[in-house]
Amino acid sequence: MADDKDTKPPSASPPPAPPAGGGPPPDRPAAASGATPGAPAAPAAPAAPAAPKPDPLKDPVPSRAVDLLKDHFADQILEVSYHAGMPIVVLRKERVAEIAAFLRDQADLRMDYLSNLTAVHWPKREKPFEVVYHPFSTSLRHRLTLKVPLAEGEETPSLCGVWPTANWHEREVFDLFGIRFAGHPDLTRILMTDEWVGHPLRKDYPLEGNPGDHLQYREVTTAEHVYKYEKATIRGFGWKKEIEKTGVGRG
């Protein structure tokens, strides 16, 4: 899908345009009338860009962490958005370690637990990588998402000194994305073998085989490809219709 065409993070934009590539048409009305008030209605999106439909999923939630970050590190914050009750703060990379230590040590935040650290590859953006942190406070029980956009080959400070658990997470991000963390004590591959070439979770890395091997390599980029492939190989989607028709195999 041409998912990645906007250079802004998707959460900031008005209701996203109907996905390009033309999904199967019958599901459009079903998606709009279903039990998902938050789903952007397709017909409204192109007509009224001035008044975007309020989306309960994107509603801001009160967050002490975001307030304090705005107070202390206003120049480091690039953007704040919300999704499904989680504040998402996009930061510059320069003072990330300092901000992490602030979140951990501040008396009314106490985010002592790094729940998750990962990365996302957006090849069409100006800064194609995004390192994502999910700190959590075991005593106050609040969460936050921090994001740090990075250019190709750019390093970001390692957070091993703040949260030791970042060690393996950062090794994994290095292994699968090729992002380097400055100051990491042991930045080696962790899931792939040491001799591995390439970083599998980059979007340009093929799912199977190499581009030269015509038998194994296949470009799987859209849901249509997946459906086509499944139909061609396994049992396809005919089985569902079969069950609806005959009742055999239900339950």
Binding site: P10, P16, D27, G34, H83, A84, R143, A223
Partner: peptide, 18 residues
């Protein structure tokens, strides 16, 4: 089971659920 569209297309965004 809630009423779910046949083709599941969540809106653009992200979630971390534990």
């Amino acid at each position: 089971r809630a009423k779910v569209p046949k083709y599941i297309k969540p809106p653009a965004g992200e979630v971390y659920h534990v």
